[in-house]
Each structure stands twice: as C-alpha cells, then as structure tokens.
C-alpha cells in the first residue's frame, strides 16, 4: 500500500514536470514572437527563396477544400489559395498544401508548421487571441439540418429530452451552443464524415453547423432539409497567419483588394460553389476585396 502511494506521488510529480515544461515552452514562444518576429516566421523574401508557401487546407470538406479522385486538392479555399501562391511566388504549383483538421488549425499556425491557413476558418474573438486573421473572403451564419420525417424548425425544439444535437469538435457551432444553449444535449465528433453518418443513423435529431455546409449536404441527400437556414448572427471566413506575422498578413490584405477589382472571389464561386449552392447565393456568401458591406 505504502509502495503504491510512493508510485502515485512520483507519477504526479512527473506529470507536473511535464506540464511545467510545456508551459515554459509556450511562454518562450511568445517571447520569441514579441522580440524577434523575423526569426520565427519565414519572411516573404524567404518564401520566395524557398520557392514554396505552406498553406493549410481541408481535405474532407467539399466544396471548400477536398481531394479529388486523382488525389489533387480542389475547392473554393484551394482555388483562392492557388491564386495567392501565383501572385506571391509566380506559380500556383508553388503552394504546398498541408491537410489539416478543424480542431488542429490553430495548433498548426502556433507551431509554425504552415504559413497560411485557408481552411474555411471562421473569424472569432477567441481565435483572434491565438492567430492573426486577414480580411474575409466569405460570410455565413449557422444553420440546422434535420430529417424530413422529424424536422427541427426552432431551436427550442432541441431542448426537449432525448433530442441530441450533433456538432463537430472545434467548430464555432460547438462553441455557440455550449455558450448560448447549455441545456441542449450535444453529440460531438472529431471528423466531418462522422457527423453526417450520425444524423443518417438517427443518433441525433439534427446537425448544427455553418449554413453553407448544410445547404450543400442537404441538397445532395434527399430526405434531409435545412430546416433553420440562418441564425446566430453573421460570421466571416478569412485566411489566417501566425500571431505577429504582420508582413504576410499585410500582403494577403493587399492581395484581396487587388483580386477584388477583377471580382476574383466571384469567379472562384462560379467555378467551385455554383454546382453545389446554385447562383442564387453568390451575394449572400461572397466577400469581395476583403470588405463586408
């Protein structure tokens, strides 16, 4: 018994040591970024010298970021990311796509494993503390999708017992419901693949997520409808860079203005989103030149 105690104590000590180490690490990083930003991030000059820019995109979220049957990155985010690479380094093939998950987007920027995140990244105050957002290229609200046989037409319906709401971990929808509706029971999954599978299996009453995502999914899955198309205010989607990487941030903002003059985001919409949402939604979704009217 006493021996057991001894072990328990030493493990706890080891745990604390580990926690201490990582905590130190974080503060060290912050010192670095405050002191000598240039040493931590690759400068634009450095990116040009390397001939590549690392852009974090989704691999399983059509039509924004996905991998096609030939293994190539495609989608709305990717389309714009390629243009960035072309204007920054002269060739769109110089974009090195890093495939990220919703929950690890911030970690990728914080650990400097990507230069830009273009993975349908919704701007939030919480995230702003950890990464720097450029101006937006898209706007959206939340939506709720549910089966036609048992449509959820008001959020209050979800407060009833046994009505589980499905969300993906690390998304703004998860944060919104945890904060605003703590009495709604949430069913959380890591991957986007899983939330749709869960709704189909009837493990939950509805999915809450960005409305775009759901409009597109419901359109191609008969038997399911976006029963609440928009609620919870308007959000914007923007490219993000590591905290303190002002040089790249400014470049992206200027770039968004430049390509805004030729209505490039509209073109991206036409080429990647039209077949999924239809033309009717362009003005609701697209932000041109980085400015929301």
């Amino acid at each position: 018994m006493r021996k057991g105690m001894k072990w328990a104590v030493s493990f706890m000590a080891a745990g604390l040591l580990l926690a201490g180490l990582t905590a130190c690490g974080n503060s060290d990083n912050k010192d670095n970024s405050a002191g000598s930003a240039s040493s931590k991030f690759a400068s634009i000059e450095q990116l040009k010298k390397d001939g590549k820019v690392r852009i974090g995109v989704f691999a399983d979220k059509p039509p924004f970021g996905y991998v096609d049957a030939d293994g190539k990155n495609q989608g709305f985010d990717v389309y714009i990311a390629k243009r960035f690479a072309k204007d920054l380094l002269g060739d769109e093939s110089k974009a090195e796509f890093v495939l990220v998950d919703a929950a690890s987007r911030v970690a990728y920027l914080e650990s400097n494993k990507v230069d830009i995140i273009m993975a349908n990244f919704t701007v939030t105050d919480e995230r702003k503390e950890k990464v720097d957002f450029a101006n937006p290229y898209m706007k959206l609200s939340f939506g709720i999708v549910s089966p036609d046989s048992a449509p959820v037409t008001s959020i209050d319906q979800l407060k009833e017992k046994g009505q589980k709401l499905i969300v993906a971990k690390g998304t703004t929808a998860e944060t919104y419901f945890t904060k605003e509706y703590p009495d709604i029971e949430l069913l959380k999954f890591d991957q986007y693949t899983e939330i749709f599978a869960a709704l189909k299996d009837g493990r939950g009453a509805a999915i809450a997520n960005d409305n775009t995502e759901l409009i597109a999914w419901a359109k191609s899955n008969p038997g399911f409808t976006v029963s609440i198309p928009a609620f919870g205010g308007q959000d914007t989607i923007a490219p993000a860079v590591a905290k303190g990487n002002t040089e790249l941030l400014n470049w992206i903002n200027t770039e968004l203005e430049t390509i805004g003059k030729e209505q490039f985001i509209h073109q991206a919409y036409n080429d990647t989103l039209n077949e999924v949402y239809g033309e009717g939604y362009t003005d609701e979704l697209v932000v041109e030149g980085g400015k929301v009217e």
């Binding site: 691999a59 399983d60 996905y66 991998v67 096609d68 495939l99 991957q191 986007y192 693949t193």
Partner: peptide, 13 residues
C-alpha cells in the same frame, strides 16, 4: 483511413 474519408466525402454527392 484518412484517404478513405476523403474518398467518402467526395463521393457523398
């Protein structure tokens, strides 16, 4: 497994 999920997501439509 991830490649499988990519294929599933693309095929969803």
């Amino acid at each position: 497994v991830k490649i499988g999920q990519q294929i599933i997501e693309l095929g969803v439509i």
